[in-house]
Amino acid sequence: MKIDGAAALVTGGGSGLGEATARALAAAGARVALLDFNLEAAAAVAAEIGGIAVKCDVASAASAEAAVAQAAAQHGPARILVNCAGIGPAKKILGKAGTMPLEDFARVIEVNLIGSFNMLRLFAASAAVLEPLESGERGVAINTASIAAYDGQIGQTAYAASKGGVVGLTLPAARELAANAIRVCTIAPGIFETAMLKGLPQAAQDSLGVAVPFPSRLGRPSEYASLVLHILGNEMLNGETIRLDGALRMAPK
């Protein structure tokens, strides 16, 4: 996929992995639309990289449809989608306060899994009617899962289930959209320097980093963004979920 000149959608673009991805795509010449529930954060990044910020609740059909239409009106139909929007609250099935409220589980599934599918379906509908590039491709979609999909910890039932769903939809989506010359891949990051982890004391961050076999540190958002660029440029990567975790396998807690 040729990045230079392509229109790109990045959900969760106002912070963390999404911000790093938006910056990397813009540096590579893409016209980037940062879709985020936090419009102020997205606007701050967009102003720095020459992109546009669009308010979007990925779990809402109406909100996502409006956001994709707004981005297309300014940048043209997108050939690149990177889904980074997500939430990850920790809560036990049976905790000291009782059972996990069903709505808490449902909200994580709505944002992380349904939100990813929601954006994928809208992106695919738009990209499928574009003229193929010289490579024959029309578009590339990259979702974000987590190593919690494989070794989720205590308190991560909702998060692990949502990310396991993202892993599960990757291959069938890639097989279906192959007929439209659209590739679909997923990245499953390990422990990365996101806003949530940066809020922890330095000692806690260091202890988490030491658990990673090599390199023994937290992952950097720029390393996630680098993999996004590689997936876009490598036409044979399709239907694959790639762990990006320094060989980390998480303990039960």
Rank of each mutant, 00 (worst) to 15 (best):
L130S: 12
A148N: 12
I114G: 02
A61C: 03
M119F: 07
L248W: 00
A148L: 05
A67F: 09
I154V: 14
A127T: 11
P77Q: 09
A67M: 08
V45T: 14
V166L: 10
L171S: 05
V68F: 15
P132H: 01
A251N: 10
P221E: 03
T170Q: 09
N143C: 14
V32N: 12
R79M: 01
R138W: 12
P77D: 13
G13M: 10
N112L: 07
V140G: 04
I191F: 09
L113V: 01
A179S: 13
G165M: 12
L177E: 02
A44S: 15
G88T: 11
G50R: 06
V58S: 01
E40I: 02
T157G: 07
S216M: 01
L39R: 15
Q70Y: 11
R249T: 07
S216D: 08
A97G: 05
F117P: 00
V108S: 03
S207Y: 08
T11F: 07
R217H: 05
L208W: 10
R217E: 12
H230I: 01
D104W: 09
P213G: 11
L200V: 00
D4F: 12
A148C: 13
F117Q: 09
C185F: 05
L169F: 15
G12A: 12
A141R: 06
S63N: 11
N180A: 14
T157Q: 12
F117R: 08
L208S: 07
V108E: 09
L171N: 02
V45K: 07
A181I: 02
T99C: 07
A247P: 00
C185V: 03
F37M: 10
A22K: 05
L25S: 11
E235H: 14
L177D: 07
Q202D: 15
A148K: 04
A145S: 15
I147G: 03
L169D: 04
G168M: 06
T194A: 06
S15A: 14
N83C: 13
I231K: 01
L34K: 04
A6I: 05
A97M: 10
V129C: 14
A141C: 09
A42F: 00
A20T: 03
N112H: 08
V228D: 02
A72N: 13
Q156C: 12
A43V: 02
K2L: 13
I231L: 13
S60V: 05
N143H: 15
A73W: 11
T186D: 03
V212C: 06
A28F: 02
L169A: 04
G13E: 05
A149S: 13
Q74P: 05
A41L: 11
S15T: 14
P201F: 01
I93P: 01
A73E: 14
M100N: 11
R23F: 07
S15I: 11
K91F: 10
L81K: 11
A59K: 06
A225W: 09
E103Q: 14
I242P: 08
M250I: 01
N112W: 07
K253V: 05
E223T: 09
L171I: 02
A90T: 11
L113M: 06
